[in-house]
Design a protein around this nucleic acid. Structure first.
Length: 678
RNA sequence: GGCGAGGUAGCUCAGCUGGUUAGAGCGCAUGAUUCAUAAUCAUGAGGUCGGCGGUUCAAGCCCGCCUCUCGCUACCA
């Protein structure tokens, strides 16, 4: 393994169309911050880069919805996000944004260099164009009827009613979200990064040279590489973003995924205009990307391909991606407001940043998705932070006040039990380091907590309050050791709980420590004056937790109401429109699953005219054998379509329940096969 | 359907290249203790390691099949 001189740590750039929540914190920012604080304490050269990702279509849509400019949107959320991070003690060396001047220049130059080197391919395709607004339409800017569930307000990339992902060309009666007009197809040219050309070295670099990456990261990369990489578009027709710096590219900007990771580089350059390159181009620099699992492919495959294509950059040494955090059993969702927002937490729990840092680390989704519950939050605070850590510190300092006026007493001779205790807590350093070095923050923090457990046990076993009546010399030794353990706690917890560590340093009257001092039993010299302690952590009562749970229940109720609301009736049609539809009743003769498809059933329907084949996407709602012999309604004059190699001649009608369950529509009593529905 | 990651005590998770009675924290029970925010300390109960089959002297760990959860992907007229 290479010996690196310095480390560049990046953390995923949060998208500035909303605030950040506990999922972001647990998955990315807390682990990154712990790691960076740890390296700094060790005196290593490290740079911690963050920033907001401020381009892309969703921001323009949000702006349009609110009648403000995209800049207004990103200014608002960049401010909220930056402040939340600051208050949680995420110690970025710089937290900038992709709308910065520097970034526009850097990203533009980066594109230009790849363009000049011939690293892109150019391709034209037909995209929807709004003739009135004179612009191409992003997928999200096109609405229309979902071909699957008939929701009239489906977007060009996805139907939110049935969750299906779509392409704009799938929509029936597409409409421009800008003008409301029907868009036309028009040819447009874009640049693509030919990932397929990078596949060979990526395969070797990841699959052979980085087997140490976390299983989730390595596995997902392998999955992608095995599927075969495709060229990816790096530009879009949009007016919000970084202009493509090439002649004839008016109205085109860099696709947001291309410009965002370059933001790491730009922000470094903004901070260090003269020396940024050593953090990105020196082979003795170790580059680490902290991200969530949704970003694995970008950071392990796409961004490295960009860096390699550019030619002068180093590649990431590791990408410690976490899985996702759920909230009270459900997926965290911005649009459904199912989240604990950082700015709201700070409002509800002022001064309690470390509690959330502790809980999110203790339960971090390092190997699989995990669940955050308020009950667990309370239990970890009350049973671990208060009862184990805070309590040990408090009893040590209170006893020191009581017996020695707060002055550190001198140690006498150590007995075997003392030595045994000391050797145990000396091990903690090595253990914490070992775990942090392999990004196992959950276990590392647990190990730090172990130090407090050792302290509590030491006090319980030596019982200085009893000896105080007979042997103050011995009490002095015991309290000295307990105080040294307390000082060690201040070091061990510094990366994890920086606010509490600072508070604790105040109690013991030591402004700072180095990591190398961890494990020492001479941190506090005899005669050193400690301060009157306050409580390091406070218990959290049931009613406080109950209030948070109620808040979530209210959200859930609001979401249910939203889901139950019935879609509004569509615009009127004339009778002739109706008669164009030929709806019939048919009897299911056979029904079976379509091989290699999860959702498809293939039917042989008796339509009174010799029978027909229909493929329908209801396999997740019915067993094939339950439908045989049933009568169903189907559209008989829909143009046939090939599905998984089967010609589907029509469409079976189903009703969709609020939860998305599909129920086929049947006549209330048996009729002749082929009967028309009028 | 394909691929990937998971399925270990009531809960949250460890278990290194297969090796004796499978671990931790919380919760629970019992006991000790009172310096401490009724905190602490000790002891104990609790597991057919998702299921079935196989390889092996030996499998939680390797192989095959199945099943459940999460993600990516195909499909949804």
């Amino acid at each position: 393994m290479t010996n690196f001189k310095r480390t560049t740590v990046t953390s995923a750039l949060p998208y500035a169309n909303g605030p950040v929540h506990i999922g972001h914190l647990a998955g990315v920012y807390i682990p990154a911050d712990i790691y960076v604080r740890y390296l700094r304490l060790k005196g290593e050269e490290v740079l911690f880069i963050g920033g907001s990702d401020e381009h892309g279509v969703p921001i323009t849509i949000k702006a349009k919805k609110e009648g403000v400019t995209p800049q207004d949107i990103v200014d608002r959320y960049h401010g909220i996000i930056k402040k939340s991070f600051e208050e949680f003690g995420i110690t970025f060396d710089i937290y900038s944004r992709t709308t910065s001047k520097t970034h526009h220049q850097v990203a533009s130059d980066f594109f230009k260099k790849l363009y000049d080197k011939g690293e892109f391919i150019e391709q034209s395709s037909e995209q929807y164009y709004d003739e009135e607004a004179k612009q191409f339409l992003a997928d999200r800017y096109i609405t229309g009827t979902c071909p699957h569930c008939k929701n009239e307000h489906a977007y060009g990339d996805q139907c939110e009613a049935c969750g299906t992902s779509l392409s704009p060309l799938d929509l029936i009666q597409p409409k421009s979200a800008i003008s409301g007009n029907t868009p036309v197809l028009k040819e447009t040219k874009h640049w693509y990064l030919p990932l397929d050309k990078h596949e060979a070295w990526l395969r070797k670099w990841i699959l052979e040279e980085h087997k140490e990456w976390k299983p989730n990261v390595y596995g997902q990369c392998k999955s992608w590489l095995d599927m075969g990489l495709q060229p990816r578009a790096v530009s879009r027709d949009l007016d919000w973003g970084i202009s493509v710096p090439v002649a004839g590219a008016e109205g085109k900007v860099l696709y947001v995924w291309f410009d965002a990771p370059i933001g790491y580089i730009s922000n470094t350059k903004e901070l260090l205009p003269d020396s940024w390159e050593k953090w990105w181009k020196d082979p003795e620099t170790r580059l680490l990307h902290f991200i969530g699992k949704d970003n694995i492919v970008f950071h392990c495959i796409v961004f490295p391909a960009m860096l390699k294509a550019e030619g002068s950059y180093i590649l990431p040494e590791n990408v410690p991606a976490n899985e996702f955090l759920n909230l009270e059993g459900d997926k965290i969702s911005t649009s459904r407001n199912w989240a604990v927002w950082l700015h709201e937490y700070l409002h509800d729990f002022p001064g309690k940043q470390d509690i959330l840092r502790y809980v999110l680390t203790a339960n971090a989704p390092e190997t699989k998705d995990n669940d955050f519950t308020w009950k667990d939050f309370q239990a970890r605070n009350n049973n671990e932070l208060v009862a184990v850590f805070g309590n040990f510190v408090n009893r040590t300092l209170v006893l020191t006040q009581k017996y020695f006026e707060g002055k550190v007493p001198a140690r006498g001779e150590l007995n075997d039990y003392d030595n045994q205790t000391l050797s145990e807590f000396a091990d903690v350093k090595r253990e914490v380091e070992k775990l942090l070095d392999i990004f196992r923050f959950r276990d590392a923090q647990k190990e730090a907590m172990n130090l407090a457990r050792i302290g509590n046990k030491y006090l319980a076993d030596t019982e200085p309050w009893k000896l105080a009546k007979t042997d103050m010399q011995r009490v002095a030794t015991i309290m000295n050791i307990s105080l040294q353990i307390t000082a060690n706690l201040a070091i061990a917890f510094e990366p994890f709980l920086p606010f509490s560590a600072a508070k604790l340093r105040g109690f013991i009257n030591r402004p700072n420590f180095n990591w190398s001092e961890l494990g020492s039993i001479d941190l506090l010299p005899a005669g050193h004056q400690t301060n009157t302690p306050e409580l390091l952590f406070e218990k959290i009562e049931d009613d406080v937790i109950e209030a948070q749970v109620q808040k979530l229940l209210a959200t859930k109720k609001a979401n249910d109401m939203e889901n139950q609301s019935t879609n509004p009736i569509r615009e009127n049609i004339v009778f002739d429109d109706f008669t164009k539809l030929d709806i019939r009743v048919g009897t299911v003769l056979t029904c079976e699953k379509v091989p290699k498809a999860d959702k498809l059933l293939v039917f042989k329907i008796d339509d009174g005219l010799g029978g027909r084949t229909i493929v329908s996407g209801i396999a997740q709602h019915y067993k094939p054998e339950d439908l045989i012999g049933k009568q169903v309604c189907f559209i008989a004059n829909l143009a046939p379509r090939m599905l998984k190699g089967i010609a589907s001649q029509g469409m079976i009608l189903s009703a969709e329940d609020a939860d998305g369950r599909l129920v086929v529509v049947s006549p209330s009593s048996q009729v002749k096969a082929g009967s028309e529905v009028k």
